[in-house]
Design a protein around this nucleic acid. Sequence first.
DNA 1: TATGAATGAGTATTCATTCAT
DNA 2: GATGAATGAATACTCATTCAT
Lengths: 173, 173, 173, 173
Amino acid sequence: MTDKKERILDAALTLFAREGYAATPTSKIAKVAGVSEGLIFRHFENKQGLLDALMQKVELKLAGIYGPVLMETDPRLALKKCIELPFLVPESEFDFWRLQFMLKWQKEYNHPEKMQALIDKLTQVFRELDHENPEGEAMLVNLILEAVATSILKGNMSQDDEIRYFLLGKYGL
Amino acid sequence: MTDKKERILDAALTLFAREGYAATPTSKIAKVAGVSEGLIFRHFENKQGLLDALMQKVELKLAGIYGPVLMETDPRLALKKCIELPFLVPESEFDFWRLQFMLKWQKEYNHPEKMQALIDKLTQVFRELDHENPEGEAMLVNLILEAVATSILKGNMSQDDEIRYFLLGKYGL
Amino acid sequence: MTDKKERILDAALTLFAREGYAATPTSKIAKVAGVSEGLIFRHFENKQGLLDALMQKVELKLAGIYGPVLMETDPRLALKKCIELPFLVPESEFDFWRLQFMLKWQKEYNHPEKMQALIDKLTQVFRELDHENPEGEAMLVNLILEAVATSILKGNMSQDDEIRYFLLGKYGL
Amino acid sequence: MTDKKERILDAALTLFAREGYAATPTSKIAKVAGVSEGLIFRHFENKQGLLDALMQKVELKLAGIYGPVLMETDPRLALKKCIELPFLVPESEFDFWRLQFMLKWQKEYNHPEKMQALIDKLTQVFRELDHENPEGEAMLVNLILEAVATSILKGNMSQDDEIRYFLLGKYGL
DNA sequence: TATGAATGAGTATTCATTCAT
DNA sequence: GATGAATGAATACTCATTCAT
């Protein structure tokens, strides 16, 4: 991938994440990226294609993030890793995840099934830990994870660590 | 408020909630509302003013929803009412709340302090119920509520009742 | 003429004179006049009709102003009265004359023949005073009058009186 | 400057000068210039910017016109050149000067001080020619020049040459 | 690959004018 | 006579996209 193509993607990600996809003109992307307006359309079919290119990475990133959890065989460790997930996202990736979360409010980008693997793993974990309602517990943890991630990405959470250790304590970890 | 003004507000709410504010042209709002496009700008200074008019109602609605919880003196009942909050939103108000939640991703509309009254109440509840870390528990419930509401509004939650009774059970209610 | 109709005319005159006809919305006229927008169109067929009503008065006013000059039989007195014309316009009528002068740049409102009576009178005056080229002198005085009026109406002339007495002296009056 | 940018400027000048700035829609400018309406806003920020671009040239043109007068050392020749100024404007520049004169009725475009250099020169000329009131004479010539220019630009002056030679004769030139 | 001038459909907004009350 | 809600055509301006270079 050329230097300029990458600069376009970077600019688009930042702008889409901060101002919204529809509210971001391609001309602004070009300016921020320091390239000509036309170049965007040489590298990407159209504005939508630029968004698609950005969204494409999500599968990969999700796999990279969930992988270690899914592969963990010790149930308590798996649960711990799972709960810590949202706290470990580096700030450099906030824009990327903000964009994902924003777009999930649009039907065409809302794919709750992408969480299924994690929920299944959590269900198994809670089963192994002899919880009464493993499905419910898994769903609950999943909900909490989404809420924590949302809160962090919005910059609402001043006391990251408190919540983190509180949650870990709550689950006896 | 005239009939037409209200129809404009209704159309705008529906469209903003489903397609997004920036992605909704005023011409479409006018068409859906069955009025001339110019009328929008007679009743609301500009497109932003239309959104503002919509957003203005949120304080009122929040007060109406939180009121019964805040006024409940029995801690267990208060907790119960609190947890049931997101499950009691009528479908007719989904668009309104979808819009609120979508916009919260925009800095200027993100006001986490609006939840503080509820968090304070929950903290008190958990203190009265002799929980070890009432602040943490309150924060957790608040997170769960937001996650549940988000899930319901996005149409992700097929098994509303399961989650609802699971949560109530979890807190011994 | 009703009170409100007159208030409309006043507002229109002021606004047309200061911001220009095309640049003045009828809504602004209504607001300044303190009447409803619709009323303008009850009293005047349309915006153009409002301007026409304003312009109609010009014949009358011109006659009122030129009359004394035309009727003066003493040539030197006639010349004196003529030169003093622009200096005697009361400030309360500045808006009216500003509008006339502005509109004269539009073909349809440019009627140089309206000055002919005055020029004829001046020609006669200079003939009686035995000037070599009475037509030329008359034309020159007319030009000077227009220039002085223009300058006064634009607010450019700080030293009205100086010019006035200089001109009178120049013509030995 | 590209071909099209210049065509936009030309069309705008013609239309502004003949119909007025406010009364000229950008769509009409585009049509007359034979370009898309959007192009106007690529080359000039907005409609006002287009006018500004037109007005910017005035300093240059004024300097070009006044230069020879200001540099003339012989007082009689200087006066002669000065009086002939308005008669030497080529018809191709009428639109440009019409626009200047029209806009001078708007406060923000009325800069009488731009004439000061010429008035100063004229004052000096009349002083050298031993006139009694050089300032008054200078002011008067300046007024006459403006009036003559106005008259020519409005197409009122049928007998250009008559006035011209009358004026020259009047000042013994 | 890269530019930037150019386009045309669209977008928010304005405004003269109408009309029911 | 008077109001003000309502209209629809126009208006300034934006923006995704194309294309010649």
